[in-house]
């Protein structure tokens, strides 16, 4: 299991909480200064999470914060995984991109923007990726019906 003591002591103001469930460690970060944490996690030899497995977002509908962006990290060197969660407190969710840290985030973030409507600031190419370009909806949001609103 990933030991996050060093991370907590390095960024006491940014790490809001650390949770553990079934062996998965989740670190909840503040949106304002989470980019330095990501760089630290990638470059620090004790972590070296150089592999970003996945980026996604969750819509909690009635709760605040409504949207939470989730990153799944993997370290080949230490054979460890870590989950980062960044709650977004806005109704028009926006967050800084991590493309400059992990280039693989490019398509993941486009997909999250496409399906969940989370905007990634400073993303090099933030277009829809899966749905038709002219659609104006974000289907994975909880208030969107399963069978759609009649988009063609």
């Amino acid at each position: 299991m990933t030991d996050v003591t060093k991370l907590k002591s390095a960024f006491p103001d940014v790490v809001v909480n650390v949770e553990e469930y079934r062996g998965d460690v989740t670190v909840i970060l503040k949106q304002e200064a989470f980019l330095p944490v990501c760089t630290f996690l990638r470059d620090d030899p004790d972590y070296s999470f150089r592999f970003l497995a996945d980026v996604t977002a969750v819509d909690y509908k009635d709760k605040t914060p409504r949207f939470v962006v989730v990153y799944h990290l993997l370290s080949h060197e230490h054979n460890q995984r870590l989950r980062l969660k960044v709650p977004l407190d806005d109704m028009n969710p926006e967050i800084e991109t991590v493309v400059n840290i992990w280039p693989t985030a490019n398509w993941h973030e486009r997909e999250t923007y496409d399906l969940m409507g989370v905007k990634f600031l400073n993303h090099p190419d933030l277009r829809r990726i899966l749905l038709p370009y002219h659609w104006d909806c974000h289907p994975l949001r909880k208030d969107y019906p399963l069978e759609g609103k009649g988009e063609e």
Binding site: Y21, R22, D24, T26, A53, H72
Partner: peptide, 16 residues
């Protein structure tokens, strides 16, 4: 919440 990944024929297949 859990994330579980396996080695699919094409690479890391994960379910979150």
């Amino acid at each position: 919440e859990v994330y579980k990944a396996i080695e699919a024929p094409r690479g890391e297949l994960g379910f979150y």
